[in-house]
């Protein structure tokens, strides 16, 4: 893969940001485990989607890979669908 080898401090900067987001993601993992209600868990998963987009964009800078922006785009578009399925199928009929 093309690695343009940008300035090392920039790479480290973006990696640090991605790492920070990853730490918040691990915190979200705890919320999924802890619950207590299904809605809490689902919202944490939704937060994962948003954080994941952020991590992917930061990584695309750190690794100099344009393709990761596409991955982030797909994730951003599709993450909402699980939420819609949750609302429609598990929370009863909408009034």
């Amino acid at each position: 893969m093309q690695t343009l080898n940008a300035m090392p401090w920039a790479t480290n900067f973006w990696l640090a940001i991605a790492g920070l987001l990853l730490v918040t993601l691990v915190a979200g993992l705890w919320r999924i485990w802890r619950g207590p209600t299904a809605t809490d868990r689902m919202l944490a998963a939704q937060l994962f989607g948003t954080t994941g987009v952020g991590i992917l964009l930061a990584l695309s800078q750190a690794m100099q890979q344009v393709a990761l922006i596409d991955v982030a785009l797909v994730l951003a578009l599709l993450a909402v669908i699980a939420m819609v399925a949750f609302v429609k199928r598990m929370q009863g009929p909408s009034s």
Partner: peptide, 22 residues
């Protein structure tokens, strides 16, 4: 709890995507 396992699995998929990136 089945639902918790499902949400965990969704999160697992996201992390796995990040691993593939790395």
């Amino acid at each position: 709890d089945l639902f918790r396992a499902v949400v965990m699995f969704i999160a697992f998929g996201l992390l796995l995507a990040l691993v593939w990136v790395r």
